[in-house]
């Protein structure tokens, strides 16, 4: 279970640009939940993910995960148990390494990176089966540099890689936003498959209202650093895009989001 307790965060403190993003923000995510988070730009969605992953530190408040206080823990230490897929497909993989090398690194996560051979040829078959699930033919391009793959392929690979380790939580940071409609559909479908299979607690930020409704077990809408909608179960099942859109229109007339 993940708990954000009384989180406060102000950007550009003490300058004319000072803006309070979170003021006593609270959120509880139960184990096994798949939470979709929507909200307009600047509502605090990505900042919340950054706080959970440790790329940002709150001014006050605590982040507790399975009873352990993460607030002061560095980003890379948190990554032992928390996986993340970014909006930018370039972030989740190394362009200068081959698919095989990227996977070999991920395969060794939470183990020692010593002076033994990095790529174990006995594992290649296993990597191949993982890649086959993407249905993109990546399994036949293991020695291709990741930099030459398309955005959708890279994002699918990033997703596979994030799921190679036994994690407690998966963070999806608008991970379909930079992809074309077809690829984003594929990647979303793949995400759902992975999350279902591993029952991993997941938090997905998205601008795609349909994805937010169709996928996941709980839906949160954020606005100015607060959760203004928080639905789950039947209530979520019965929600439709128009309902959410109405709320969006109510809270801000200028929403520059793609629907």
């Amino acid at each position: 279970m993940l708990e954000l307790e009384n989180i406060s965060l102000t950007f550009n403190k003490g300058t004319p640009d000072e803006s309070v993003l979170f003021d006593n923000f609270n959120l509880k995510i139960e184990e096994g939940e798949f939470v979709s988070v929507i909200g307009s730009n600047g509502s605090g969605k990505t900042t919340m993910l950054n706080l959970i992953c440790g790329s940002l530190v709150p001014d006050s408040g605590r982040i507790v995960f399975d009873g352990k206080d993460l607030t002061k823990m560095s980003e890379y230490r948190r990554a032992e148990r928390i996986g993340r897929v970014f909006q930018d497909p370039k972030m989740g993989t190394c362009a200068n390494l081959t698919i095989l090398e990227n996977m070999a690194l991920a395969d060794n996560k939470n183990k020692i990176f010593g002076l033994t051979r990095a790529v174990n040829s006995k594992r290649i078959e296993y990597y191949r089966t993982l890649l086959e699930e993407c249905e993109m033919g990546l399994e036949n391009r293991m020695n291709t540099l990741v930099g030459s793959l398309s955005g959708g392929q890279r994002q699918a690979l990033a997703l596979v890689i994030a799921n190679m380790t036994d994690l407690d939580m998966l963070i999806l940071d608008e991970h379909t936003a930079a992809l074309d409609p077809k690829s984003s559909e594929t990647v979303m479908h793949l995400t759902d498959k992975f999350v279902h299979k591993s029952k991993i607690t997941s938090l997905m930020v998205t601008h795609n209202l349909r994805f937010a409704i169709e996928y996941g077990t709980r839906l949160i809408m954020m606005h100015e650093g607060k959760c203004i909608v928080d639905i789950r179960g039947d209530e979520k099942k019965n929600a439709c895009v128009d309902d959410l859109l109405n709320i969006f229109n109510k809270i801000s007339i200028e929403v520059g989001n793609k629907v």
């Binding site: 560095s74 980003e75 890379y76 230490r77 990554a79 032992e80 996986g83 993340r84 970014f86 370039k90 972030m91 989740g92 993989t93 190394c94 362009a95 200068n96 390494l97 090398e101 990227n102 070999a104 690194l105 991920a106 060794n108 996560k109 939470n110 020692i112 990176f113 010593g114 002076l115 033994t116 051979r117 990095a118 790529v119 994030a162």
Partner: peptide, 27 residues
């Protein structure tokens, strides 16, 4: 060396330091 785990991690650091962070290693 560049073929070892440590060496590959070094290459990853130059390519995408965030990737190394996500591997739970201090870039």
């Amino acid at each position: 060396y560049l073929k070892t785990k440590s060496g590959l991690l070094l290459r990853a650091t130059g390519s995408n330091a965030q990737y190394v962070t996500m591997l739970a290693k201090d870039q």
